[in-house]
Computed example of a mutant assay.
Amino acid sequence: MEDFVRIRRHGEYLRTWFSRHAGWSLDITAECARLYKVPAHLMDSTRGAKSSRDESDFTRRRYVLFCLALTILVRAEMQTTLGELAQGVIRILQEDDCFRSLAFDLENADSRRDLVAAVRLLVENFALKRVDGDDQRFVQSQKNEVLYDVRHHVIYRLLATRKAPSAVVATDWLDRLAALTDEPKLQTGEQRNLQIRHEINRRLLDDPVLYLPGDLSEDALEYFSKQRPHLIRVLEEATDMVIEDRREGIALSDRFGDCTDIGLPEDGTDGHATLLTAEYLGRLRIEQPGEVIPTAVVEQFIAEQAQIFRKFWRQDAVAPGSEMALTDEVLQRLQALDLVRRAIGGVLPMPAIHRYRHELRRRDVSPQ
Rank of each mutant, 00 (worst) to 15 (best):
A238D: 01
F99M: 08
D132V: 07
E2L: 11
D207P: 03
Q142T: 05
E55F: 12
R137G: 05
T260G: 13
A317C: 14
L348V: 06
L281G: 01
Q140S: 15
S225T: 04
R34G: 04
R197E: 07
L85D: 00
R20T: 06
D134N: 15
D114H: 13
V330Q: 00
W173P: 03
R151Y: 08
R255W: 09
R53N: 13
R176D: 04
R162A: 09
R363M: 09
E107K: 15
R363A: 10
L205H: 03
R285K: 11
A296E: 09
K129M: 11
L284H: 01
E291G: 03
S52P: 03
T16M: 08
A178M: 12
L177Y: 10
A22R: 07
W313A: 00
F256N: 13
P165T: 10
I232R: 01
T327R: 05
G346N: 09
E84S: 14
R130Q: 12
W173F: 14
Q315V: 09
S51G: 15
Q368K: 12
T274N: 01
A49R: 15
G23H: 06
L339I: 06
A343T: 05
S51T: 07
K185A: 14
S51H: 04
T239E: 00
S253Q: 14
R283Q: 12
D219G: 04
L186W: 08
H153F: 13
D207W: 13
L235V: 00
P320T: 00
R314K: 14
G346D: 06
W24T: 02
P265Y: 02
L121S: 03
K37F: 07
Q187C: 06
G249V: 06
A352S: 13
